[in-house]
């Protein structure tokens, strides 16, 4: 039987590759490779050989020019060694081949700054939204309740009843759109997959700290109209087992953490559609 294959890109300040790979494995991928960007730029590893791409958390290039800006520039402009191929072509081909991309935190920042999200009209290289400094002006590590839009086309959140509970760990997570029209198109298309909310997952939250960064309409995650590309500020890979929950010593929790469903859905989608 053919293998389901996930790849996690690391290097230049990516930090969450180990736990993201672990989540892919628990989610059911037959193989998960942690690839340093140097190994992709050198041509040793090619995105074409994988079904699920993880762009995960960290501080790409120290977020020195604004979060993930320098990596977005690198991916757009760098060529694979010894070829005429720009790296970005591997990305666009990956998308057009119907494969899955999940960007978490710094990975989400990278996706919006490359223009991969929201990805209207099949244009994955046009930036229309951004993630910028939290209103509180500081990095925040805290857990958040995330209300799901169950009408979303998102492949990853399929089956989540009301919401999920995950940590955010960022200084630049405030979601903004370039225009009211973009926001309306996102919301009308149910592309705002997750929103910061109250503990019952009923109301989107506007106030700190329940909304940790001041995001427009409490938007915490975004998908493209196909539902195969998703970016989110909270960390699903940080909650795949109950011992990662901040209150596991006082609550009765299932073995699996809330974030694992995203990886399971990804593996399931790959099995059904790409193998």
């Amino acid at each position: 039987m053919k293998q389901t294959r996930a790849i996690v890109i690391t290097g230049n300040g990516t930090n969450c590759e180990m736990e993201a790979a672990h989540a892919c494995k628990l989610g059911g991928f037959d193989e998960t490779v942690i690839a340093h960007i140097a190994e992709i730029l050198s041509g040793d590893i090619r995105l074409d050989d994988f079904h699920f791409l993880n762009l995960t958390g960290g501080f790409l290039d120290g977020d020195d020019l604004g979060s993930a800006k320098a990596q977005a520039n690198r991916l757009k402009n760098a060529s694979v060694v010894g070829t005429d191929e720009k790296l970005v072509e591997q990305f666009t081909r990956f998308i057009s081949n119907g494969k899955l991309i999940l960007g978490v935190c710094n990975g989400f920042q990278l996706m919006v700054k490359m223009g991969m999200l929201p990805g209207f009209d099949g244009n994955y290289l046009q930036q229309t939204v951004t993630l910028t400094h939290n209103d509180c002006g500081r990095f925040q590590d805290r857990w958040t309740c995330l209300k799901v839009d169950s009408d979303s086309p998102c492949v990853f959140t399929n089956g989540i009843a009301k919401g999920i509970y995950l940590p955010v760990r960022h200084g630049e997570g405030k979601f903004l759109c370039d225009s009211a029209a973009t926001l309306a198109r996102i919301e009308d298309g149910h592309l705002a997959v997750l929103r910061y909310s109250d503990a019952g997952y009923t109301e989107a939250a506007t106030e700190f700290p329940v909304n940790p960064n001041g995001s427009t309409n409490a938007i915490a995650a975004l998908c493209d109209p196909t539902g195969r590309l998703m970016g989110m500020m909270p960390h699903p890979e940080a909650f795949v087992h109950y011992t990662q929950h901040p209150r596991w010593t006082r609550e009765t929790l299932p073995e699996e953490g809330d974030g694992l469903v995203l990886y399971k859905n990804a593996a399931e989608h790959v099995k059904r559609n790409l193998i």
Binding site: N15, C16, M18, E19, H22, G57, R138, F139, Q140, D141, R142, P167, R169, H235, E237, A238, V240, T243, Q244, P246, R247, T249, R250
Partner: peptide, 20 residues
């Protein structure tokens, strides 16, 4: 403490803060 990422690498079991 909240300005420090205490959960990266995914192995956090007892965090700096506990309780309801």
């Amino acid at each position: 403490v909240r300005r420090y990422d205490h959960e990266v690498q995914g192995g956090s079991v007892v965090k700096p803060f506990s309780g309801v």
